[in-house]
Nucleic acid binder design. Structure first.
Lengths: 207, 207
DNA sequence: AATACTTGCTAACGAACGTTAGGTTGCTTA
DNA sequence: TAAGCAACCTAACGTTCGTTAGCAAGTATT
């Protein structure tokens, strides 16, 4: 079950951890080399440049988020159900790759063109899919929000803050996080009436 | 009305904008000097080090957030009302200093000890004040959340995501943002019953 | 008129940066 | 057994980094 990592993958994994901890710019190739127990120059046997690592992490994570969203949206249902599944999918990806997610969310600005533009375009598309669900929910009368754009931003704020506090060894598991998040986004602090929410069991698309 | 900035303040303001745009580490003193139209060495007639700028920005913003929260909490009321006022106060500070807020929220990790520890301690205290309000709301029956800590994190996620999209020239004004944020946090996407919320007019503590 | 303060300059420091060139070792494959 | 390849090395490249030293001009204060 334990995946055997190629040297290149080991480098990426270690770099990702450092990028998360210190930031891309503040992480030197010598820092990375030191963490790997080799010399800085040796890294270039495996990668073309420092930025290539960042690119690979960012676009791999983008792919993962899209794949998870695709799977979540392949199941029809009410806007509420679809939003819950989308949230769960996002949280799953995020919590399964905490370091890579942090890099994806915070270090993308150090991408150079044309990768930066491509990244931003992907972000827009992804956000748009969520916005679509919100729009459907408003149309159907399930949701009632003062501003559709604002609602989407709120959802992403909640989703993308998770990595700042989530610890795999903590008591809160990904599924629980997703459920709480859905509950809070859909009903807020006040509402005790959450019976209309689908239960975690129904959310499982696979076993 | 237009405040006259000392040279030191001009440097800080310019540095803050650059730190937000490129990040602390990726901003060089020569970048900063160039933006100011002077030589890098000249900056040191006004400041002791690059990090001193970051320290001043971070701790000045911390002070502003605390002052605003103090004012908001000086008025008694239900937990709902107090939370709304605290949110409004936070949004006001955030939107009035977008660049400094971004630096405060994202670049603090480049502080060296002992400033880093002090910063984190202040953050904890600030978060604790919000958590207190949530706790009161749960006790009084106003709020019903699965997890108090989680609810606080949700609030801060919403609050601290604003700077990534807020534009002063945009159509959404700080007060409107605060109202929408309170509404979404308190009632979520679903609830149309928001009559229990105090209206913006009641939120004004000064004129 | 003398003093002090503000603001800026040129020149340069040692350190760290990302990266390249060229070579060596040891394992795997034909 | 030879060839190929993955992995890593030392040495060094040109550049940029934050910062210091020493000095000069302008402005405000005494």
């Amino acid at each position: 079950m334990e995946a055997v990592l190629s040297r290149k993958e080991q480098i990426e994994k270690t770099a990702t951890a450092l990028f998360k901890m210190k930031g891309f710019s503040a992480t030197s190739m010598r820092d990375l080399a030191n963490a790997l127990g080799i010399e800085a120059a040796s890294i270039y046997s495996h990668i073309k440049s420092k930025e290539e690592i960042l690119q690979r992490v960012c676009f791999r994570m983008a792919q993962e988020f899209f794949d998870a969203l695709d799977a979540a949206e392949s199941i029809n249902g009410t806007a509420t159900e679809r939003l819950q599944r989308a949230i769960t999918a996002h949280v799953q990806v995020l919590t399964k790759n905490t370091a890579a997610s942090a890099v994806f969310l915070h270090e993308w600005r150090h991408l150079s063109e044309p990768h930066l533009a491509e990244y931003l375009s992907l972000r827009d598309k992804y956000e748009g899919r969520f916005r679509s669900i919100i729009r459907d929910g408003i149309s159907s009368g399930e949701f009632s929000v003062p501003d559709e754009k604002f609602a989407t931003l709120m959802i992403f704020s909640g989703l993308n803050w998770i990595h700042t506090w989530y610890k795999p060894e903590g008591k809160m598991q990904p599924e629980e996080i997703a459920d709480n998040l859905s509950a809070m986004l859909l009903t807020g602090l006040n509402n005790t009436q959450r019976d209309f929410l689908i239960t975690p069991t129904h959310l499982n698309t696979t076993n």
